[in-house]
Amino acid sequence: MGLLSKQFDDGNIVLTSVEGVLNWARLCSLWQMSFGLACCAIEMMAASASHNDIMRFGVLPRPSPRQCDVMIVAGTVTLKMATRLKRLYEQMAEPRYVVSMGSCSNCGGPYWEHGYHVLKGVDRVVPVDVYIPGCPPRPEALLEGWMRLQEKVRDFTLVKQEGEHA
């Protein structure tokens, strides 16, 4: 957590930046939207079940997009689903993140060539923060992807960046 300082004798006083404490709070309670589409959804379930227990990262699966910070797109996005996916993404509150889990949502996966009804990569409709390769990725891979996302959240800053529009 950013700067931990022990300048004071009272153990309850900690000095840190506002960003540091906000980011720390956010990255430890990233609520995910359970967006299980296909095979990867089973591995996503396995990640939250007994052996892997993703909930120790503060992950709570929520069914409503309004309560979520992260959308894990787990599975093949078809053209019929893509419009719905975009709408659900737009319903999420900012700041919001997207994890693309598995080859299908990264790039179309095994369906890239003849899949006339498959969207070749979810990044064609929504911006993606973390890509997890694999068909399907193991639960451990999802955990690794989750930690990468936490790193990204840790670097979030409230200060306007150079070249950024208001």
Partner: peptide, 29 residues
């Protein structure tokens, strides 16, 4: 039943051509 209502053509016909775009989304890789 499977494809959207506004889909054109029947994909398992031997002479089927995959559309370039569907609803503004690019279909081929």
């Amino acid at each position: 039943i499977l494809l959207p209502e506004d889909w054109e053509g029947h994909p398992l016909r031997k002479d089927y051509q995959v559309p370039e775009f569907y609803n503004g989304m690019k279909v081929p890789y």
